[in-house]
């Protein structure tokens, strides 16, 4: 009988080889393994089934499973790449990869476009932006008169919607973000540079012979 405790990683649904995931992302093998430590804690926080449910996702983000929010739902849906209603490890790593400080800016622009294209029509429509503004106002308890919201929308669409058809297409979004780079701030997580020090226990559970740096 061995005294080392097995993590049972091979039995985690959707668990993909860290070497392959590292080859497809900006993460090193060690960082993928450190992310697995984070993944394990999130995916076992409500039901220990090796998958992240929406409830577990929200609990990890807000420490509160009851918080229903338009943005949190949208981010979850984008992480749920295979549209299964849950996030597996491959989804988790590939989605977080977009938030890596070294990820290509184009990937960040694409992800942010999908985030704001709430109904996935390929356009960010004015009514979607208004819906998100109203959600933000509710969340922050900030009060803005409807007329002010409309003025903000007018100004935004005047700048972003170059052909003035009432919706922002991908190319218009790209140009708008290039002119307003602060819009991509939410798309970078500096924490992702330090995940091996945040989750050092990965070294005890590593499945690769030599830890890549």
């Amino acid at each position: 009988m061995g005294c080392l405790q097995s993590t049972g990683r091979r039995h985690v649904p959707g668990h993909e080889d860290p070497i392959i995931l590292a080859s497809q992302t900006a993460f090193t093998v060690s960082e993928v393994e450190a992310l697995f430590e984070l993944y394990k804690s999130i995916s076992s926080s409500v039901i220990d089934d090796g998958l992240i449910s929406k409830e577990e996702f929200q609990l990890a983000l807000f420490k509160n499973r009851k918080k229903e929010n338009l943005f949190a739902n949208r981010v979850f849906d984008l992480f749920d790449v295979k549209r299964k209603g849950v996030i597996d490890f491959g989804d988790f790593v590939r989605s977080l990869n977009v938030f890596h400080p070294n990820a290509p800016q184009e990937d960040k622009i694409d992800f942010s476009f999908k985030l704001y294209d709430l109904d996935s029509t390929g356009y960010i429509e004015r009514q979607e932006v208004k819906q998100m503004l109203i959600a933000l106002l509710c969340e922050s308890e900030m009060k803005l008169a409807d007329e002010t919201v409309e003025m903000i929308l007018d100004k935004t669409f005047l700048e972003a919607d170059v052909d003035q058809d009432g919706k922002i297409d991908k190319s218009e979004w790209h140009n708008f973000v290039i002119k307003n780079p602060s819009l991509l701030k939410i798309m970078t997580l500096p924490y992702l540079r330090d995940i091996t020090t945040t989750f050092p226990s990965f070294v005890f559970n590593s499945e690769v012979d030599e830890i890549a740096t």
Binding site: A60, N69, F71, Y116, L133, A135, T156, L158, K185
Partner: peptide
């Protein structure tokens, strides 16, 4: 009504202030 007011923030700058779009919660223990 002055849609060109230089002080007016754009809608996406405002939306980006949502705490629900900040994924750093994953890393804060």
């Amino acid at each position: 009504k002055s849609p060109d007011s230089p002080t007016l923030i754009n809608a996406f700058q405002l939306i980006g202030m949502s705490s629900c779009l900040d994924l750093s919660g994953f890393f804060e223990k």
